[in-house]
Amino acid sequence: MSTPARPHRSIFEPPAIGQMSLATKIVLYSVLIGWSLFVLFPVYWLLITSFKEATAVNEGPFFIPWVDFQPSLHAWKELFVIDYADTLRAYFNSIIISLAATALSVLVGSMAAYALSRVEYAPNLITILFFVALLALVAVSVGVWGIDWRLAAAVGVALFFFLARAVGNLYQVRLQNGDILFWIISQRILAPIVVVVPIYMMFQSVRMLDTHLAIILTYTVVNMPIVVWLMYDFFNSIPRDLEESAQLDGATMIGIFREIVLPLSRAGLAATTLLVMILSWNEYLLALFLSTSRAQTMPILVAAMNAGERGILWWTMSVAIIVMIIPVVVLAVILQKYISKGLLVGAVKG
């Protein structure tokens, strides 16, 4: 049934009450509280370290501010007053890059997911293989034989358009939507290290290394498979007759997507956005390759604090890590009321 509003219970909300014995309860609570301590203690340590002077760190473990040691703001000052240019630049880089990459991958990914859940495709596998073979040929002729890339590309395109049709008409192995979906999702198996070297060389050849756009595009592609995968399941769970009805009423596809599908997918979009945002915000290896100074992101900045001649400055590093958590928490708080429990399960239920 489409209309009864699905109760949007948040994932952080417990279910109704039941009964269990006292012994079970005691075991249960000790496990949960024990784990909470294990989770929270490192965070607490991080927090107090950010207020410690060098001596308070180096002279052994001090646990409680004002009792064990005198808290000070020197590390915060160092990062935000003295070195503010570096810190803020990395911070804004990170924010711009992860926002843009998240927006792009959620947009492009949901469009693909929606299309895959609603339109029937039947691409010819032979044509695709032909295309890939040509791509490889072009790459070899440019990279190894040193042929001018414009010439190679032109010949490749020409060959594709003249030959692909002929070959494709002779042999047909039709793929289905499921195959396309699997192909897109399987891109996530690729470790960044496999593709990053050519991507690096690609951006180098168009002089785009160390720019926001390069990192944004790369992150978009890396995270898109997750978006497609989560949103495909979500779109599939939206009753089709809503869209069919709108279609009969004369709405265009874009109109239906904007007016009906997107508003109904808020929960799915919120969860996907949060996940992709966290992944882009924390990404390290690709940023390490693609940025050197101007486009440097926070994880790189934090990682680089290791390399100073004064050894690791645990206090400033703690500050940097803490300020990196803040935007994620803010986003999680904003989005969590949209994230319904059903989503995550729908996504993994195969």
Partner: peptide
């Protein structure tokens, strides 16, 4: 479909859950 000038009532009613009654009726 949109050029056939047809209106359809579905078994599930296919009402848009995020639109009010007025918006639903006025959608076409």
């Amino acid at each position: 479909p949109k050029y056939r000038d047809i209106a359809m009532v579905f078994q599930s009613y296919a009402l848009y859950p995020h639109k009010t009654v007025a918006e639903n009726i006025g959608f076409p």
